[in-house]
Simulated scan of single mutants.
Amino acid sequence: METFLNTAFSFPTVVFSILLSVAIIYWLISLFGMGDIEADGDIDASGDFSGLMVTLGLQGVPLPLVLTLLFLTGWLASYFIDLIFGALIPSGLLHWLYGAAVIFAALVLGLLATSVLVRPLRPLFRRAFLQPLQKRIVGTPCVVISSAVTEVSGRGEAILDGAHLVLQIRSHSPLSHREGAVIIEHIPDENAWWVVPESEFYTGDSAG
């Protein structure tokens, strides 16, 4: 027990111990009804941050859950790395450099582990959120955040009820980065959305 406490509450593992404690407090507050967890099927954040999360494979579940898994897996990685190698590093500047390297390595390992852990959870949140989303999102404007949108690939950002949603979008008319479009239909098999350019939608030229 003494070894566990010394490792968990000493640098560098203490950084993840603090972050994980904050996450636990958040879930306890939410459990007692004093907080609100949005199962919105995607990450509510700025476009660049959301795009990064999609790239890392962390989309599809609420951001608090992603962060909790990241802190937990990062803590585990940091704890066992420090448990094995910490006693070999002398105190002083070298120990701080070692700690920074451990934190970086733990974050990388945590991201990899979290991206694997969220995969089986996505369908759970998709079922909870997708049906209400389908009813509300058709007709919503969006902005292309990928380099282009075609019939087979593309990403867009829409704002729904004040929340930023990053969605997989498809279009019969090629769209470029930051071009405006309007969501017209859901594609269940791909969990994506058909869109048309804003000009076509508002002039009635789209095929629907």
Rank of each mutant, 00 (worst) to 15 (best):
S21K: 09
L72C: 13
F16D: 00
T68S: 15
F129A: 13
Q59Y: 00
T150E: 02
F125C: 04
W75T: 10
G47F: 01
S147I: 05
T150L: 09
T150G: 12
L121G: 04
M1C: 12
P120E: 02
V15W: 05
A148G: 02
G60W: 02
T150I: 09
G47A: 10
V152Y: 05
S173I: 13
R119D: 03
P188G: 11
V22Y: 04
A105E: 01
L72T: 15
W193A: 01
H164T: 11
V54F: 05
L88P: 01
G33E: 07
V152W: 00
F201R: 09
S147E: 07
L167H: 07
S199A: 14
V102M: 09
D82A: 12
G35E: 08
P64I: 12
P62H: 06
A113I: 15
L117T: 12
T3I: 10
G99H: 00
I187N: 06
S17L: 07
W96H: 10
L112A: 11
G204E: 08
F32Q: 06
L167R: 09
A113K: 06
I137L: 14
V54M: 08
G92E: 03
A192P: 08
S46I: 08
V14T: 13
P12F: 00
G35P: 09
T13C: 15
W96P: 01
I89K: 09
F16C: 06
E185L: 11
V14C: 12
S153D: 10
T68Y: 04
D36R: 14
F85P: 09
V108P: 02
T150V: 06
A77F: 12
L133F: 14
L20R: 04
L121P: 03
V54K: 07
D48C: 01
A158L: 12
A158K: 08
V108R: 07
P62F: 03
L121D: 00
G51S: 09
G180L: 15
A8H: 12
G51D: 04
S10Q: 11
F104D: 00
S206I: 08
I81D: 03
L130T: 08
G99P: 02
L167D: 00
K135E: 13
F129M: 10
F71Q: 00
A158F: 11
A8L: 15
L109A: 15
M53V: 09
H95R: 15
I184T: 12
V143R: 15
S10C: 11
E190A: 11
A77K: 08
F125H: 08
G57F: 07
D48Q: 06
D42V: 01
V182Q: 03
Y79C: 10
L70I: 15
D205L: 15
I81Q: 01
S206D: 14
F16P: 01
I183F: 07
A45H: 01
L56P: 00
Q59S: 15
S50W: 01
T13P: 06
L124M: 13
A148P: 00
S199H: 10
G180C: 12
S91M: 11
